[in-house]
Design a protein around this nucleic acid. Sequence first.
DNA 1: CATCCAACTTGATCGATGTCAAGGCGCGAT
DNA 2: ATCGCGCCTTGACATCGATCAAGTTGGATG
Lengths: 258, 258
Amino acid sequence: MTTGVKIESEGQLRGGAPCSASKGAALSPVTVVLAAHAATLRTRRGQTVALMSDSLETAFIVRAGVLTLQVTMPGTSRQVVAMLFAGDVLRSSYVPPCAEGALVAASTSEVLRMRWGALAELAAGDPAIAGYFEDAVAHQVARQAIHAATLGQFDCEQRVATFLIELALCTGVSSQDGGMVFDMPFSRKDVADYLGLNPDTLSRVMSRLRIAGLIGRSERNRAVVRDFRALAALSPAARSLIAIHGDCQAEPPVRKGL
Amino acid sequence: MTTGVKIESEGQLRGGAPCSASKGAALSPVTVVLAAHAATLRTRRGQTVALMSDSLETAFIVRAGVLTLQVTMPGTSRQVVAMLFAGDVLRSSYVPPCAEGALVAASTSEVLRMRWGALAELAAGDPAIAGYFEDAVAHQVARQAIHAATLGQFDCEQRVATFLIELALCTGVSSQDGGMVFDMPFSRKDVADYLGLNPDTLSRVMSRLRIAGLIGRSERNRAVVRDFRALAALSPAARSLIAIHGDCQAEPPVRKGL
DNA sequence: CATCCAACTTGATCGATGTCAAGGCGCGAT
DNA sequence: ATCGCGCCTTGACATCGATCAAGTTGGATG
């Protein structure tokens, strides 16, 4: 609360280039139009955003920052279902019934909120809005598929590598020597819950990667990937992630052999 | 190929009540309208449906049967990302790039296929279609969240219980004694790949459940849940699954506060 | 500057689950 | 009917990752 960063201007809250849902850039014209019909929420790290207002279905559009969508089934520890970046969208009905769902800001972030009914109406009147929403959802569903494969098939090292690559692609800036630097908006427990790992195990894997020189020792809340290529070699999902997230970065989308 | 069941009439391919995406019943008016603009694919068990035609983005609407969406990352075994039932929808862009994706019929099934662009156009002209599609997607995203929690947090017994409950709710018919009977359209390996388990482990868990009397020994391609309540008690996701899938059964869609 | 506390690290140990291999069952083919 | 094959089951064993506990770090606070 005391160290909160004041939001100055839109779109550059984080160091990295904003990662957007597929084509729609973070501050695409569509989100500007939507902003006129929506409430703009500005959140700090750790803040929880209510998923329903007045028990009405609600829609959210992330304009900046990183958030997590979490689900807790009775008797188990929470699962971080998805990381949400600029351009991503959310409906409260995306959270399963009879489960505790939470939308939590991992960093200072900016989110548009409106009734789902209002958004559906806008979308009905403007194909650009409908298309933006559909494409954002498609993008996120594809990421969810990668996440499912990560949870179901990868060993712990592959999971961690996958996570680091995703975050680096979405919020990182490359250094000239093949490395990347980015903010780490998550606690160890957050990451563990995203990857379905034990926090201790996660710590061990990170240490191993650090010793191997793939990642660097970093200050609090900051991460350094020293050798992106080597990290990518560890993750079976690397190519997919680069294809899906890469085109938000500077580089032109190469995407050979798709 | 030789034992294929001939499709006689729509909507009753499987024994159970069709499970639909939220409100839209399996053969809701919307899918009837869409059928006029789409190709109708009829598939047998094991048949793979091409996700793209002419490298154009394609949309699918499941009208009957069960299909699986599978993703394989290089160097790992496949992950069954989702089971698709009547009412569910799919865009080819839901499959991550640079990964091998496949849509495979688990049972005799019926699927509508059309260009995504054509569906988007229809949706733009008819809010009912747009709403049907959006709600179907929301429904599936919520199920994906449950699946992620299953893969990330549940132990093997909880995973198997969760799977059996989902399938029972979607395709099963209840017997009077608290049990349910349904077709088992998946091989042991399919289920294992859905749950992120080893097939041998799955076999062991099923044996344990059988010995405990929760499920019954069944003929080939058929499953019997003897004690649904006891099975539900094993799965932390049971309440969510019942809430999400239950309303395709007899009960009218209550959904208060939408 | 000293202290406190939360978050992280790391070692030792255990158990759940994966792996391998042998055996059984059922279905289709001959 | 019998054979052969694919799929499933089950036991023995190996291994990865979870758990527990002690120690360390670093930032916040007075």
